[in-house]
Design a protein around this nucleic acid. Structure first.
Length: 110
DNA sequence: CTCCTGACTCCAC
DNA sequence: TGTGGAGCCAGGA
């Protein structure tokens, strides 16, 4: 889909597109999203873009987790709980440590 | 332009 | 399985 994008707006859109493409009940790592967006090695950029999403965003940001298969937030933090609830709605279980049960079986890489 | 920070990763112990 | 350290890129002060 996307090659090496240089414009900030283009990068955002590329990342949004990839996140939006993640199937229900599946998850993807920051690194994978970056790769699929044509931005290899820019996992941090993905996290930055997602952190700037508005509260009413329809983007399934909660389907993006860290490469270790865990939620990127501190356990029991507000954001952590929100993400966990969204994932549970899609039949994905989260261990107390934040680790996704069944990982990497539910992993999606395009 | 330099310095600091972060929703990241990888590797070693 | 969990921790700690180094590498990385982008954005804001």
């Amino acid at each position: 889909m996307a090659r090496c994008v240089s414009d900030p707006d283009k990068r955002r859109q590329a990342i949004w597109q990839v996140v939006h493409a993640i199937p229900v009940g599946r998850v993807c790592t920051y690194g994978d999203v970056a790769l699929l967006a044509g931005l290899p090695g820019r996992a941090r950029l993905v996290g930055r873009v997602l952190s700037e999403l508005p509260p009413d965003s329809a983007l399934p940001w909660y389907r993006v987790i860290s490469a270790s298969g865990r939620i990127a937030f501190a356990p029991e933090s507000e954001a952590f709980v929100r993400q966990r609830q969204h994932l549970q709605q899609e039949s994905l279980a989260i261990a107390p440590t934040g680790r996704l049960t069944g990982w990497p079986d539910c992993r999606w890489q395009g």
